[in-house]
């Protein structure tokens, strides 16, 4: 190596130093620590007690874990497609807004800024079965809305409905992607006599499929870790008041309660690795599927 490039290496690595320290102290170290903790019984009072795979065995037969995992998968299966479809629709609509697109973009994005705790507090009332504004609106059309916040069958759909209010960031991302699709492709499609619907399937979707795929992966990972809104609405001091919490018991909520309310640090670590595996498997499946359906610019198809 020449002196110049050695000096360059040293300077570059010096700039990286904060990240390297942080990675060891807050990511790699904790991961190893957690892996070991997951093989112990640890309540923070006595030193960790090695119990082998006992925590994992318990997690596999724990009804609460099964409930939490099921709730989380159902929520994700409803939330991600709803979010993507609505964001696509909104982006397509905004694309036609012309000069006022900036104003509508602001309108869509504002809910994203709302603290989730405030959002959860207000939607507890907006979704209220008796006098909530959402059921009042449904009533205008002759529908009787369900008890979104108390009926176990409707709690997850209610949470999904609420989550749609913050669809704006995804819609803004799609809007930017739509403007990158070359206009000539639409012109060519129109010359071939393609209907707007066919143009959407054969020009728009392939043009933004990379972005859509990215948001599916990111949204899925986030959704499998859903916590704040459901915890605010149904847990904490409120858990004692409502017996319907089971329908909103999501995986990270269960993990959080095992760790910080029951102080079962070893068991919670095993639960965390369980979630890690679930997320890794689902992401791997999505990566596989993307090879078939995602079209990247500049690639031969």
């Amino acid at each position: 190596m020449t002196t110049v490039s050695r000096r360059e290496s040293r300077a570059g690595l010096l700039f990286l130093l904060p990240w390297v320290i942080g990675f060891l102290a807050f990511t790699a170290g904790p991961m190893l620590f957690s892996l070991w903790l997951s093989l112990t019984h640890y309540d923070m009072l006595k030193p960790p007690d090695f119990i082998g795979l006992e925590n994992y065995r318990e997690a596999l037969v724990d009804d609460r874990v099964a409930t939490a995992l099921w709730n989380t998968l159902v929520f994700t299966a409803l939330h991600v497609p709803a979010q993507i479809v609505l964001a696509l629709g909104l982006a397509a609509l905004l694309r036609r807004a012309g000069r006022s697109a900036g104003f509508f973009r602001t309108v869509l994005y504002l809910p994203v800024m709302t603290p989730p705790v405030a959002l959860a507090a207000m939607f507890l009332l907006l979704l209220n079965g008796q006098n909530g504004a959402i059921n009042e609106f449904l009533g205008w059309f002759g529908f009787t809305g369900p008890n979104w916040t108390t009926d176990p069958a409707w709690i997850k759909p209610g949470l999904v409905l609420m989550s749609l209010w913050t669809v704006g960031s995804t819609a803004v991302l799609y809007l930017a992607a739509l403007t990158r699709v070359p206009v000539e492709r639409y012109e060519a499609a129109r010359l071939d006599g393609a209907s707007p619907w066919r143009q959407f399937w054969h020009v728009t979707l392939p043009g933004i499929s990379g972005t859509v795929y990215f948001t599916v992966v990111v949204n899925t990972i986030a959704s499998l870790q859903v916590f704040t809104e459901a915890y605010t609405m149904f847990f904490g001091a409120r858990a004692k008041q409502s017996s319907d919490g089971d329908a909103a018991l999501f995986y990270v909520i269960h993990l959080f309660r095992e760790a910080f309310e029951s102080l079962r640090m070893g068991y919670a670590s095993a639960l965390a690795w369980g979630l890690f595996v679930v997320i890794a498997v689902i992401t791997a499946v999505q990566v596989r599927l993307s090879r078939r359906y995602v079209h990247y610019e500049g690639e031969r198809s």
């Binding site: 990511t27 904790p30 620590f33 670590s269 890690f276």
Partner: peptide, 8 residues
């Protein structure tokens, strides 16, 4: 996933 490092 942030949940993995939450406890440690």
């Amino acid at each position: 996933p942030g949940a993995v490092t939450m406890v440690p």
